[in-house]
């Protein structure tokens, strides 16, 4: 497996993912969900991760947190190799990292009261004093814009999707983590609620000094919150770069296609009749060479023979393509 490297803009990387591979065995076959991804996230930075359904975004996020053990590769968090950690050491480290899911309602236990749900990480972390727990729960619920007195005694089904996501965020924040993987945190929410939650995440990030890996399939959403963006396709990174730069001058044909496909709320912008690019191939038998080649308008022989590696195309911008747009 060859190395793709995408150094972060700052030298102090809180998270350093090195050549990560995750494979799922299904029957006699193997799903190549993540195939050699390297990336760094600097302390205080938000890295957006975009790509189509099934490209391996969630798998990558979960493998970073060791919720799914990677097949190969290393994950350094604040200098510690999480992939080499077991038992108590890993459990201690896990307090510093958290995960927020796409489906807020499904990720809350329907039979437990909100107060208990939000306090659960404290219990696991061994905070024994109930008064202390109660106080922390109240603080964090207030921080996410909920009234603790109205909320703690109720069950998840009494809340809307947006409120459930606030509760999930509160639960993720209660141990004061340094790093959060947000896996499509707003994809299930309506437009008017989505903006509230995005603003809340931004506010919490500032207030708690968080570093974020923000996963989404919606480029506009990712751009709104990310310092840098990584574009993923079928288990590999295509392009990484500073958000604005990447949107203004995408280097990878796939990034350009994604940007072009976004419906613009302006009737004067006629939708471009997109090139018939078909659907992504199966990760069980990914194409040789560049995995995007079966849908790429620029593909040639070299693209099927040789796997393109990430390389610099502009300051801070990296692309894995033999024929980049810039």
């Amino acid at each position: 497996m060859m190395l793709q490297s995408a150094p972060s803009v700052s030298s102090e990387a809180l998270l350093d993912v090195d050549n990560l591979v995750v494979e799922y065995p299904v029957g006699a076959k193997i799903v190549h969900a993540v195939s050699g991804v390297s990336l760094q996230i600097a302390r205080g930075e938000t890295l957006g991760l975009v790509g189509e359904s099934g490209c391996g975004k969630s798998t990558l996020g979960r493998a970073v947190l060791q919720l799914r053990r990677p097949t190969a590769g290393r994950v350094l968090f604040d200098g510690h190799d999480l992939t080499a950690m077991q038992g108590d050491a890993l459990r201690l480290m896990r307090r510093r990292v958290q995960l927020i899911f796409q489906d807020p309602i499904a990720s809350l236990n329907p039979r437990r009261k909100i107060g208990d749900i939000v306090a659960e990480p404290l219990v696991i972390a061994g905070v024994k004093d109930p008064e202390k727990r109660k106080q922390l729960v109240h603080e964090v619920l207030t921080a996410v814009g909920l009234d603790p007195t109205l909320v703690v005694g109720r069950l998840p089904h009494e809340f809307s999707g947006g409120q459930c996501q606030r509760i999930c965020i509160a639960r993720a924040l209660i141990l004061n983590p340094e790093f959060i993987v947000c896996d499509e945190p707003v994809s299930a929410l309506d437009v008017s609620i989505r903006a509230q939650i995005l603003n809340l995440l931004e506010e919490m990030k500032g207030r708690f000094g968080l570093t974020l890996l923000f996963i989404a399939h919606d480029l506009a959403v990712v751009k709104a919150v990310s310092d840098r963006v990584a574009v993923m396709y079928l288990g590999r990174l295509c392009e990484v770069g500073p958000s604005e730069q990447l949107f203004a001058r995408p280097a990878h044909p796939y990034t350009a296609l994604l940007i072009e496909a976004i419906p613009v709320p302006d009737p004067d912008v006629r939708p471009t009749e997109t090139v018939p690019v078909g659907e992504p191939p199966s990760p069980i038998a990914p194409p040789s060479g560049c995995r995007f080649r079966t849908r790429c308008p620029r593909a040639d022989q070299r693209c099927s023979d040789e796997m393109p590696e990430l390389r610099v195309v502009a300051p801070g911008q990296f692309v894995a393509c033999h024929h980049p747009l810039i």
Binding site: G162, S192, E202, V221, K223, A224, D227, P265
Partner: peptide
Amino acid sequence: EALLAALPKLDAAPHTPLPAISGR
């Protein structure tokens, strides 16, 4: 108007707060 304003814009700089619609 509020619905349109609440959409993240591609031409806005990252970390621009979105004009959210309060409540639900």
